[in-house]
Amino acid sequence: MSAKHREFESEALVHMDVLYGLALRFTGGDDAAAQDLVQDTLLKAYRAWDKFESGTNCRAWLTTILRNTFINDLRRRQARPAPVEYDEVAERSVYPQLHEEDAEGGFFDRIVDQEVIRAIEELPEDFRVPLVLADLEGIGYQEISELLEIPVGTVKSRLFRARRRLQQRLYRYAVEMGYIR
């Protein structure tokens, strides 16, 4: 085994599970697309390996490659975007329903992880991508606006709607499961 190969394995390949998780969130749970995305990412990283400075944050470097790869592909696909449907009812905070029994948000901790993952992955793409960028990756509005080539105001409103939809869905789930009255 070559030194490069060994190094790549111990520094890059160890992040495969993180990359695959993120790829699933980006692609809305599309397993084949997520696997392709991770493969493309690691292939690019392998080819550019001599540009990567050993000892710096490899995971951050890889997630940036993954993000850019996904977004380039998204732009190509969305050359003619489908209109987004807006659902005002789903865009309220669940706080008014919950504040008497759970003011501090501990309610969310009672929901199993898998349901949150599913809820994120099932958001419409226009809402899901800004949410993954902002809430999972911690990227600011301005950078998201540049990445997705949409105005900052649109980033804000899509993020707002994405979060509200997510909350509403988790709330309905919690009620169905009897976690809350």
Binding site: V18, Y20, G21, G105, F108, L131, L136, L166
Partner: peptide, 12 residues
């Protein structure tokens, strides 16, 4: 909560 749970790795 969304941040913590959303970043969960996946295995294949």
């Amino acid at each position: 909560y969304v941040h913590d749970r959303g970043m969960r790795p996946a295995r294949s």
